[in-house]
Design a protein around this nucleic acid. Sequence first.
DNA 1: GCAAGGTC
Length: 640
Amino acid sequence: MARKILCVAEKPAIARAVATHLSGGSFQTHAIRGNQYVKNYEFDFNFGGPWGDCSVTMTSVIGHLTGLDFERQYKGWMSCPPGSLFEAPVQESVDKDKLAIAENIRNQARYSKALFIWTDCDREGEHIGSEVRNQAKAGNARIEVKRAKFSNTERAHVLRAAREPVELDEFQANAVAARIELDLRIGAAFTRLQTLQLQAVVAALKEKVISYGKYRSGSSKIMTHASTGSCQFPTLGFVVDRYLRVKNFKPETFWSIKVMHQRERKKVNFLWKRVHLFDRAAVAMMLERCLMAKQAKVTKVNSKPKSKWRPLPLTTVDLQMMGSRFLRMDSQTIMKVAEALYTKGYISYPRTETDQFDKAIDLKKLVEKQYPDDSWGQYARDLIDGKFRTPRSGRHNDKAHPPIHPVCWVSQNQLNVNEKKVYEFVVRRFLACCSEDAKGQGTEIEIQYGEEFFHANGLIVLERNYLDVYVYDKWESSQQLPNFEKGEVFEPTEANIAEGKTTAPSFLTEPELIGLMDANGIGTDATMAEHIAKIKEREYVVVHQRGTGRTKVEELIPTRLGTALVEGYDNIVAGLSNSISLSKPFLRKEMELRMLEICAGTKTRQEVVQQSLDMYREVFIHTQRRIEMLKAACRKYLVE
DNA sequence: GCAAGGTC
């Protein structure tokens, strides 16, 4: 009788996709008792090597199986001082709504020789894999455990993953376990402390709109507790920081000298090398000297090739930033759509930090797959006919996933509106990566006029190359400059003094915020968008629209509550010697670095949990001691 | 009633 192998994916859609490929399309589907989404797919497959022909059950979980919580006596908000949550005993248990799924795995494991884990190949996937393994071992202690490594659900890739399994990465699973414990303890301690304390303030202001309710309900119930998630707060901090810079901005007047010369019916504007100065009298005097000199002299005529570089291979953060900018979708929507495209097998795994392609990937083959497309098929053919270039390599590599790229072509009418946009972006970006840089000729003319130097720049785009497919980048020829000879002398047509004002920075936009979060290690590429959604949901920030139509920009503005919380916490920690702030990202970044140490094997899970708790406990005690400052800030902003 | 991370 054939050996039986149990395969478990992270989500039902992947289980189905993998089952389809391994079985060649013929499998039996069985519902499981107690869950309507998870199915067991049964079929035969030859794994090769020591495994050979096997009868396979492919099933899935739905994300994490287990959750961590405090033991019963610590669950009530009044049961203990919030600070004791740093030490209170915690326990892991299978979530209520996952019991049937866990049972299914135990049952299936009982008759299986081996377990193949098919969770997503990232840190969380490794942890989910360990949860699956624990259930399987509970059903069959002797089951052998393997892990399939894959980054997309294209057929050949899946077959190879099945035949070349690796081991589960315990380090990564442990890193996630550490994160889970820290997030629970720190989040619960701060949230309880702050909510219980601020309720007193808010109760005194019951006329105000701050209502208390559930935030996860999705209903129109308005916000709830002020919480101090170690991701939400730094995220809010960025928004408030920018807001205050805008609000406190005082415009300054500056002056500059503008020189214009007309030749060959073309007007050339020369820009001042000093750009501008804040002293009108000084500028006026300099202009006077120019005019006295009458003649300007051409000191430099430079004509040199210029190029505009093709983009780097696509990462998640870049997808979200570019998406917000060009596709007019918020980052959360983009990720949902990208996830759907990945599940259907059209693009590779959309959560990646890697901006360099591995040499082993056959890029040309991927380009060829785009031949059938009406819009960019011809471009793809031109690449293969000689224009193909190896993509640039960025500096990031998460060692888990390739940059986001299309794995096969899909006809537009198989996709909905948003899917079309994101798929098109991924394809165009990929083709652009495999193209030549755009080439042009740049001209720079420098003149000396009196004591001052001025310059004019011109550009002629000669070869558009990647720009032809990557319609999101703009690089246009400027008006052509008339001829100037080095050393020639002429009298400029006009020279004036021009006045301007420094302008305030604009409020933070979502793509900017994502960039800041990424640079500071707030959240994962998968969750940044959710954190932003959450601080909106909790009414720490609101979205304002500036402009209309094509120039429409959505800006993030903190609410009074948001501002109050950040100011309150900033005041609280202002006295701390090393001045760590909850609204600043350092703590979270520190934690992320420690998780990486677990992954590298240089620190244990226990060490990291202890160190991080010590660090946060210090901030907590300090907050408790100076809680009056937080209340004061709330009074200040929430009372008229 | 707390977190952040998976996914339906």
